[in-house]
Computed example of a mutant assay.
Amino acid sequence: MPTIAIIEGVRITIYLKDHLPPHLHAIFSGQEAQISIATGLVLNGNLPRAKLKAVQAWLAANREQVSYIWREIRAGRNDGGMIE
């Protein structure tokens, strides 16, 4: 599970060969949320409200790059790397 960013202490990961729809995993202090890359909505799980808002803002600013990395990781052409 490549980590692609750390946002205010929240680790953002994309699992290899993960299921559709395209999403990321946001992990913080024992909590995890699956967040849609396309919409920023929580698909499953939860995070503290302030942490979720920070992740959603980061995702909105980086959506195109996150979508590209999600496709590349799923296709086995990329093993991650941090998005600044």
Rank of each mutant, 00 (worst) to 15 (best):
L20W: 03
A75K: 15
Y15D: 13
I6C: 11
A38M: 09
T39A: 07
G81N: 05
I4R: 10
R63G: 00
V10F: 08
L52E: 00
I7E: 15
E32H: 02
H25L: 11
Y15H: 11
L41K: 04
M82L: 15
W58N: 02
R77H: 12
Y15L: 12
A60V: 07
K51L: 06
Q34C: 06
E32V: 02
N44M: 13
K53S: 07
W58T: 01
H23G: 06
L16V: 05
A61E: 12
I4D: 10
F28D: 00
Q56L: 12
P48D: 09
G9P: 06
W58H: 03
Q65K: 14
G76E: 05
P48H: 09
R63T: 07
K51A: 04
E64A: 14
D79N: 13
R74V: 08
T3L: 03
A54S: 12
I7S: 10
A57I: 08
I73L: 10
V42R: 08
T3C: 03
N62C: 08
I37F: 13
N44L: 14
A57S: 13
A5W: 07
G45V: 04
P22N: 14
I37L: 11
N62D: 08
Y15I: 02
T13P: 00
E32L: 03
R11I: 01
G80N: 11
N44Q: 14
P22V: 02
